[in-house]
Design a protein around this nucleic acid. Sequence first.
DNA 1: CGTTTCGTTCAAATTGTTTTGAACGTTCTG
DNA 2: CAGAACGTTCAAAACAATTTGAACGAAACG
Lengths: 170, 170
Amino acid sequence: MEQKIMDFVDTFIEGAGEMGSGLGLNRSVAQLYALLYLSNTPLSLDDMANHLKISKGNVSMNIRILESWNAVRKVWVKGSRKDYYEADLDILKIIVTRLKEGLNRRMSQALSLLQNAEQTIAENNQNGNTKDKEQFKVFQERIDRIKKIHSMTTALLTTISPEKFLMGNL
Amino acid sequence: MEQKIMDFVDTFIEGAGEMGSGLGLNRSVAQLYALLYLSNTPLSLDDMANHLKISKGNVSMNIRILESWNAVRKVWVKGSRKDYYEADLDILKIIVTRLKEGLNRRMSQALSLLQNAEQTIAENNQNGNTKDKEQFKVFQERIDRIKKIHSMTTALLTTISPEKFLMGNL
DNA sequence: CGTTTCGTTCAAATTGTTTTGAACGTTCTG
DNA sequence: CAGAACGTTCAAAACAATTTGAACGAAACG
């Protein structure tokens, strides 16, 4: 294999490292995925550790993060007792799924907070003085905005849910 | 103002801190925005530092990050020589704008990388052996997928561009 | 069996990010 | 003009996240 091409692979992987850190994933996770994404064949933990020059423990931990996202899967290779992995190539699916999960997790937290707030605001609004009432109204309004954003975002993510999205699979 | 309500404000802000760290913003940035988001009136640097119990330097640096995103703006308060800030309430606009910027920045990097790769692949594809040719084809295919994702995502973000988005402003 | 090959775990080390606070320049104020 | 009130800066400190590698257990091997 030509040197230039191997360089490309390395540059791609390096780029993926920075890229990934852009939103929420660490270097190793991003690079592991990039390596598998470009690879023709499934790779073993040792293959990956060697190629990326990172420790075996690191690969073991981070590959299982990718597995938990269904971004990679274990495949069985005849005649070897190592674990081999390959990438799920549908990047968009992976991203949308993760966004949905994240949104729900964060929002269920936030929404119960808002629930309490509204409760308290309603109670206080009965007998507060004028100035307090104004403040309550502001809170109420801002909270409503957030709720609206939540429902919009949820709707949006469902709309672009991979199953339904443009022209079948990528 | 009732204790319960002040508790709500604090809990909200605290929540925002964790929330924000979920994707790419640090605690102070998230909390500054949350504080201004709930506030009736513009706040000075000292107000913010006091309320959030963080240093003045911290506020100064991080408020200007928010400013650079147009998430907050400086307002002039008659009779004071402090700087006061208020939040832009259109959270969705802020998010979409930032996503667009981020996507473009990262992608222009990635795309030039892909450009080079394709160049090299094309050259090599002329005279490689069979096995190499297969590998080239794989690279080419995977690169094309990424390009496709890029154009889809760009299109999507444009579609939900706030100006055009559902029912006017939030 | 005893040995080797794997993957996993986790405490310690490394690396990266955020925060602080003292020092500073500028502008206002009396 | 001297002093106070502001916002900014940046090196150092505190804190958080990632990575390493040695230790371990389980399974395969001979």
